[in-house]
């Protein structure tokens, strides 16, 4: 599963492109204090913890965990 730091995310979308399961999108309604529309996970149960999203993230806002 992934946790995205809502306030730190700049909404660049590189993680959206990288995700093989297509479970990340940029928020359409919620923006953070800086005015960015951060990335959000649509279904963490489908996450395979491959960490490709985190590798592409220039702002180190994605934490990836695995297991119970």
């Amino acid at each position: 599963m992934i946790t995205i730091n809502f306030e730190r995310c700049k909404g660049c979308g590189l993680c959206v492109e990288a995700c093989p399961k297509k479970i990340i999108r940029l928020s359409e309604e919620k923006h953070n204090q800086k005015g960015y529309y951060p990335a959000e996970c649509t279904d963490n149960s489908k996450c395979i913890s491959c960490a490709l999203c985190a590798m592409m993230c220039p702002d180190c806002v994605i934490k990836v965990e695995k297991g119970e």
């Binding site: 730190r8 960015y36 960490a51 592409m56 220039p58 702002d59 180190c60 990836v64």
Partner: peptide
């Protein structure tokens, strides 16, 4: 839960001043 990926220690826990999508951030990491 085992952590697969997180911010490295040597990277400060602050927002960078780079533009969205600028890959400087990846290289820093």
């Amino acid at each position: 839960m085992a952590v697969v990926f997180d911010k490295p220690h040597a990277l400060c826990d602050v927002a960078t001043t780079y533009c969205p999508g600028c890959t400087h951030g990846i290289i820093h990491r």
